[in-house]
């Protein structure tokens, strides 16, 4: 589509052409989409899901869903990046919904090691898990903005475009989300 009256909108057709190539059965186009967006979507997911293997599986789900959607009767109409993060948000939400319905049987892992490096890695993982856990108590939008900004690492303008908001709105939402998360972390630390 071409509309010279909106010159500020530029790069989207390359994505659309990629999607149409996938529709036409072009494997390299599919690989290009996957490799271009997988890292950002993974970081987006991994901020909310502490287990790296699970984050990888969920990220992979996002791309299979993309393939399902693009070959279905109603292919994505939004920007590809926005669509992928939207689906990633829902995949993570679906995962937690499933977890709440069928709580994981936790086994106490008694890590007994003198290895300082391992200890540090465990501590980092615990911090990640605590953050992901605390994030799950925020509103959907707050989680989304934090995952976009700190997970996927999107600049403010791209996050604003992805969320359909102004840059100012995203900054405000981000600040509130960070403050809410800090309160959650403080509460959890106090309760422990």
């Amino acid at each position: 589509m071409r509309n010279p009256t909106h010159p500020e909108r530029g790069a989207v057709p390359a994505e659309a052409a990629l999607m149409m190539r996938v529709l036409a059965g072009d494997r390299p186009a599919l690989v290009e989409i996957h490799d271009r967006y997988y890292p950002a979507v993974y970081r987006f997911v991994s901020l909310q899901v502490a287990d790296p293997d699970l984050a990888a599986d969920l990220t992979s789900d996002v791309f299979v869903r993309f393939l399902e959607a693009i070959t279905g009767p109603n292919p994505p109409q939004s920007t590809l990046k926005g669509w992928l993060f939207g689906v990633a948000k829902n995949v993570v939400r679906g995962h937690y919904r499933q977890v709440y319905r069928h709580p994981e049987v936790g086994l106490e892992e008694d890590v007994d090691s003198d290895d300082a490096e391992l200890d540090a890695a465990v501590t980092r993982d615990e911090e990640r898990a605590a953050l992901a856990d605390a994030m799950s108590a925020l509103t959907e939008e707050q989680q989304h903005v934090l995952a976009l900004r700190y997970g996927a690492g999107l600049p403010i303008l791209e996050a604003a475009e992805t969320m359909g908001k102004t840059a100012g709105a995203v900054k405000q939402l981000q600040a509130r989300a960070v403050a809410a998360l800090a309160r959650q972390m403080t509460q959890r630390t106090a309760s422990v």
Binding site: R2, N3, P4, S78, G82, E140
Partner: peptide
């Protein structure tokens, strides 16, 4: 010339049927 391909539905266009419509697009 600028191009525009469906970017009016920014962010959250979820065809997976799970989007609960909580994206606030009117509050900008």
């Amino acid at each position: 010339g600028g191009q525009d391909v469906g970017d009016d539905d920014r962010g959250g266009d979820d065809r997976g049927g799970e989007d609960e419509g909580n994206d606030d697009k009117g509050g900008d």
